[in-house]
Write a protein that binds this DNA or RNA. Sequence first.
DNA 1: TATGAATGAGGATTCATTCAT
DNA 2: AATGAATGAATCCTCATTCAT
Lengths: 199, 199, 199, 199
Amino acid sequence: MPRTESANQEIREQREAQIRATAAHLFAHNGYVGTRIEDIAHAVSMSKGLLYHYFGRKATLYTTLVDRASRGTVQLFQESLTGPGTTAERLQRLVRQIVEGLTEQPDMFMVVMQAFMSDAVPIEAHEKATRFARQTQDLMSAFIQEGQEVNEVIAGNPEQLALLLGSCIQGLAVSQAMEGRVPPITNTLIHLFTRRCAG
Amino acid sequence: MPRTESANQEIREQREAQIRATAAHLFAHNGYVGTRIEDIAHAVSMSKGLLYHYFGRKATLYTTLVDRASRGTVQLFQESLTGPGTTAERLQRLVRQIVEGLTEQPDMFMVVMQAFMSDAVPIEAHEKATRFARQTQDLMSAFIQEGQEVNEVIAGNPEQLALLLGSCIQGLAVSQAMEGRVPPITNTLIHLFTRRCAG
Amino acid sequence: MPRTESANQEIREQREAQIRATAAHLFAHNGYVGTRIEDIAHAVSMSKGLLYHYFGRKATLYTTLVDRASRGTVQLFQESLTGPGTTAERLQRLVRQIVEGLTEQPDMFMVVMQAFMSDAVPIEAHEKATRFARQTQDLMSAFIQEGQEVNEVIAGNPEQLALLLGSCIQGLAVSQAMEGRVPPITNTLIHLFTRRCAG
Amino acid sequence: MPRTESANQEIREQREAQIRATAAHLFAHNGYVGTRIEDIAHAVSMSKGLLYHYFGRKATLYTTLVDRASRGTVQLFQESLTGPGTTAERLQRLVRQIVEGLTEQPDMFMVVMQAFMSDAVPIEAHEKATRFARQTQDLMSAFIQEGQEVNEVIAGNPEQLALLLGSCIQGLAVSQAMEGRVPPITNTLIHLFTRRCAG
DNA sequence: TATGAATGAGGATTCATTCAT
DNA sequence: AATGAATGAATCCTCATTCAT
């Protein structure tokens, strides 16, 4: 008796998820060009042929990762923007959620960063990452401005502050990915951008 | 009649400098594996063969860049630590110098970052970059602690603050390298880590 | 559906044998450095890539050949030493077997000789060949001494006689490999080292 | 005051001799393809450019060596053939002279051997070596036959005996070149081919 | 769905040879 | 005569991708 349609579907999804996770890890550590299809196949205990069955090409696999990571983070932003609470509360929640996500899946962050920073990746991935960077930078900037208006965020050019905050987050992702741990730094990070003196 | 010793010496030095600058740029944008020797040779308008005449192998060229950039930055740290002025003044000066350097040579920064973050680089380069990261992190941490003791730097775990400050600097390097410009952000950056309220 | 395990195994073994034979021939005639992987690939009608699939590197392929040839000949020696018959009979049998083998596979002999004589071969191959040369020289020497003790072999320093006998054999291998034929010389050769006068 | 014409000439000849000796050594040990012009230049403490001044191309240098070595040996043969003494005496003298030469300049012998055995050498060198091999084989063969006629040389097919004797000589050259020494084997060697029993 | 044999274009490296000085 | 900078063709080796089974 053949497996049911849905059982097959489920297996397939599990496999894909496994491939994505493994590929993200390898890409994160070795870069796009430095990661071989064979490495990925070996890491998921599967033949090259089968891997190709799931992801037609290396570029597709990579771009998919960038896409998913980007979407996930952007969604966090959007939820924070429209969610409940004061501006400061929502900004804090956002930062917390990002740091949390980054702690659990640093590889995905690394891949996006890398796709942004490198020209030696599939062009589509690079463009996606660039759009993502701009988008989050803008959203963060708006967020900060809003926070400044209610006196909850430190003074300064919002775009510049957003750049710095974004840099801090990326730095944490690198720490997590490279050294396997990030200190429980979120409070310090938030504190850094929070208005501390009565004004 | 052969060229004089010094004439050859001069040719060598010019060529090497030219190669280093160009290679740094390409490595910064395409990564170690993604940069082809042929690209570098073409960019400096010389044959592959000649490039190999100067740097026996791709790995050597790359590692040399990491080494030079690391040394340069470490030296800035050391000068700042032992230089004149209050802690805050010296820390500020350090940050300014780094940002200045990074504005002028973002590629070198990128290469070190990349060598730190990637496993797909010559192992020697990776190790150098890792040592560099630890070293600057420690120096910065000590610096911050010193600043805190004289109430000139924001409160918080010095190591964590150093990590964040370092991340900000890296973020600026990325901005400069990728978008070709960094906003005049140094003051904001310094402000972020400076104690702002009487207390 | 993938090929069965054994089908793959069979393909592998056939291919490997095919590669070894062809490679031996080319190496024998052009030397290690003078033989291009592409030549071998072309001669066995397969792509370079596939050749590398089977033998990771040129050096491995070469060293494998040296190893096999050495082992084969050493085994002949050992069988002769422990086999039945008088000393003279066994020595004669050994020489006959070697010459026979050399007539059928002169290339293998040439490769070992070459690996012994040249420094421009993989070091492992050179060392194997050197060990082989010493080993067979010693075995032959002992054999000759034994033959002298029962008055069946010509008088003289056994080591020197072994060297000369070995040289003759090598000379035959060269003849066979270069000119494609060796005269039916075995009897003459044996006669040369056999005691001919009543003593 | 410029050097005199003849002084220049002398320097030139010395240099050339030095180059030949060094090149012979390197070619003998590393083969034609495995020896780099730069290696030779370095070994004679001279720039590549200057080396090219003396020998226009690698092939020329190599072929010159083969040529000189061949001629030298052929000359020995001819002198022996026409010299004084009985056949046995002249044959012995020839063998002694060859072994003597081979002891002093094993590299030259190796180069000729190699040029004969390998197809990966300049075609001219290969052809010269092949002609040389044939020529000496024939001369030796005739010599042996002559010796047999006066009952001074062992019985057997002269060509085959010549092949064996030649092989022995080559084997000695290899010993000398590879291990730096040949045992004082000449008597044994001569004894091998000499008629020993009254009859 | 699953495997790994097979291909070939691409990239690192070497080296004979030339040439300006 | 002397040097070593400069070139580029040749060669090793890798790896994404395809395909027969």
